[in-house]
Simulated scan of single mutants.
Amino acid sequence: MQQITAAIQKNPAIRLVDFARNFGHQLAITAGLRYAHGTAVVVMDADLQDPPTVIPQMIDKWKHGYQVVYGKRAHRDGETWFKLASAKAFYRLLKKMTSIDIPVDTGDFRLMDRSVVDVLLQMNETDPFVRGMVSWVGFKQTSVEYERQERKAGTSKYPLSKMIKLALDGLTSFSLIPLKLAGWAGGFLWGISWLQLLGALVLGKLGSISFIIFALLNFSGLILGGLALLGLYVGRIFTASRQRPLYVVADTKGFKQNQQLHTYSQQQASL
């Protein structure tokens, strides 16, 4: 903190936003985006594992018309096998379970055009998953590959518990598949119950035990199916409560007043 304060005295272009307490990594990014006023914004961690030397490559891509340029990790130095395996599995699972194209092997290190940042600032989410939000808004996106360096000093402030929370935030923010799991399990049990009853009839072993097993599986399947149906309604309520824009327009042409960016939110729709 003192070093940054001293640097501000020498270079007034430097800015510092000091939280009253630790509100978490994703909210720190959100706060940084709200205080940034440039035509392009670069998000990166302060530990310098993401090398600043990649930024000029991002700027070059941005100048060629890309509105989001994210860093893609070709190699990660100094990471444990568990961290590498769990990160690889998480990114691919998230890509499979969501309806948006979240690039694999990427973090929050990226350059974003002002038009993208302005849309992100409208998504006032309490548990943001920024890399998912950036993919959700769309725009023209590309990547720059780099080697993530080993931490030179200090220790990571991102333990396993925080990584699990980030993973759950990503899944629950952009996928309703966890709510549908109960329905799939219920349908499976319901189908098994009828197959079991049919098998008992064919083999001539229909008895009280067969009926008890059938009843348990059948009613368990129906209960899980009912929970899944309720979960779908809860999922719709959850999605609506986030107040995300209904759509994002990158540009318009042929109108008298050519709007470069316009979003239409659920809140505006109710007015």
Score class of each variant (00 low, 15 high):
Thr263Ala: 02
Leu166Cys: 00
Leu160Trp: 04
Gly226Arg: 15
Thr239His: 15
Arg110His: 04
Trp136Pro: 03
Val116Tyr: 02
Ala269Lys: 08
Gly231Trp: 04
Val119Cys: 03
Pro178Ile: 03
Leu121Gln: 06
Thr142Ala: 08
His25Thr: 14
Asp18Arg: 14
Val43Met: 06
Lys157Tyr: 04
Ala228Gln: 10
Trp190Asn: 03
Ala167Gln: 09
Gly38Arg: 15
Gln49Asn: 10
Ser220Arg: 14
Phe129Leu: 02
Ala6Val: 04
Glu125Met: 04
Asp45Glu: 05
Arg73Tyr: 13
Lys180His: 06
Asp60Tyr: 11
Phe139Arg: 04
Leu229Gly: 12
Leu201Ser: 08
Ala7Arg: 15
Ile223Asn: 02
Trp81Phe: 13
Gln2Ile: 08
Gln49Trp: 02
Gly24Pro: 00
Ser86Arg: 03
His262Pro: 10
Leu201Lys: 11
Phe19His: 12
Asp113Glu: 08
Ser193Trp: 02
Thr98Cys: 01
Asn11Cys: 06
Ser173Ala: 12
Arg21Asn: 05
Gln122Tyr: 04
Gln266Gly: 09
Gln149Gly: 04
Pro51Lys: 02
Asp45Leu: 01
Glu145Asp: 11
Ile14Gln: 06
Gln149Trp: 12
Ala28Arg: 02
Val134Arg: 00
Glu150Ala: 07
Ser265Gly: 11
Ala89Asn: 04
Gln259Met: 11
Pro12Asp: 12
Phe214Lys: 00
His64Lys: 13
Pro51Tyr: 01
Ala36Arg: 07
Met112Leu: 10
Trp136Glu: 01
Gly71Arg: 00
Thr142Val: 05
Ser208Val: 11
Thr30Ser: 13
